[in-house]
Simulated scan of single mutants.
Amino acid sequence: MINHAAERAVYRQIADELRDRIQSGQLGPGDELPSVRHLAQEYGVGTDTIQRTMDVLKVEGLIGTVRGYPAWVVEEKDRARVSVPRGAEFIARMPTDAERQELGIEPGIVVPIVVVMVGGRQRGKYAADRTRFTFS
């Protein structure tokens, strides 16, 4: 339920609810989300608020949008499994242009990279949206 008096912005609260629907499977890959107008009515907010909500979910890689069409739930990307030793440290940051090229991250796409450090030494750099880490 949306709390208009809460510290957390309303558009983020709505994003939380829609994210829960997606992650629970209530909305699956390929399913269309209700229209911006429908969601605005459902939550009692303006369409600008819902548009901000959609922007959050799109940046998170949960939905796709094309102007003039309903937003849809995207299929989760396959992730490479990388085994790291216990005690490894992870540093998340935005990539440099050279790292974008090296890791195949398209310009304009917002994807942090994860730098794995073991014993103070760098062990690898990975695009966060396509990597699943496990401990060896």
Score class of each variant (00 low, 15 high):
Glu89Ile: 06
Glu42Gly: 02
Gly64Ala: 04
Ala71Thr: 07
Leu103Arg: 11
Glu42Pro: 03
Ala88Tyr: 10
Ile50Gln: 10
His38Thr: 12
Gly61Thr: 00
Pro70His: 07
Arg19Ile: 02
Thr96Pro: 12
Arg100Phe: 13
His38Val: 10
Trp72Glu: 01
Asp16Arg: 06
Ser24Ile: 04
Lys58Asn: 03
Ile14Gly: 02
Glu102Thr: 11
Tyr43His: 09
Val10Tyr: 12
Thr65Lys: 06
Leu18Arg: 06
Tyr69Trp: 06
Leu27Met: 09
Glu99Gly: 00
Leu39Glu: 07
Arg19Cys: 11
Gln13Glu: 08
Asp48Trp: 04
Gly108Phe: 15
Glu42Ser: 12
Val74Asn: 08
Phe90Glu: 05
Gly64Pro: 04
Tyr69Val: 04
Arg19Lys: 12
Glu102Tyr: 14
Ser35His: 05
Gly64Leu: 03
Gly30Leu: 08
Ser24Glu: 08
Trp72Val: 05
Pro107Trp: 11
Gln13Val: 08
Phe90Asp: 09
Ala80Gln: 10
Ile14Leu: 08
Val74Arg: 04
Pro85Lys: 07
Ala71His: 05
Arg12Phe: 09
Ile22Glu: 02
Leu103Asn: 14
Gly28Asp: 05
Ala15Phe: 07
Val82Arg: 05
Tyr69Phe: 14
Val114Lys: 15
Val36Gln: 14
Val110Ser: 15
Thr53Lys: 05
Val114Leu: 14
Glu75Gln: 03
Thr65Met: 08
Asp20Phe: 06
Val74Leu: 12
Ala80Tyr: 03
Lys58Thr: 05
Met94Asp: 05
Pro107Ser: 13
Pro85Asp: 04
Gln23Thr: 05
Ala15Glu: 11
Thr47Trp: 00
Pro34Gly: 06
Val56Gly: 04
Thr49Glu: 08
Ala88Cys: 13
Ser83Arg: 11
Val73Met: 04
Pro29Asp: 01
Ile50Thr: 03
Asp97Asn: 07
Tyr43Met: 01
Tyr11Phe: 14
Met54Ser: 01
Arg81Ala: 08
Gln23His: 09
Gln23Ala: 07
Asp20Tyr: 09
Lys77His: 02
Gln26Trp: 11
Tyr69Ala: 09
Asp20Met: 07
Val111Cys: 12
Arg52Lys: 10
Pro95Tyr: 09
Lys77Asn: 03
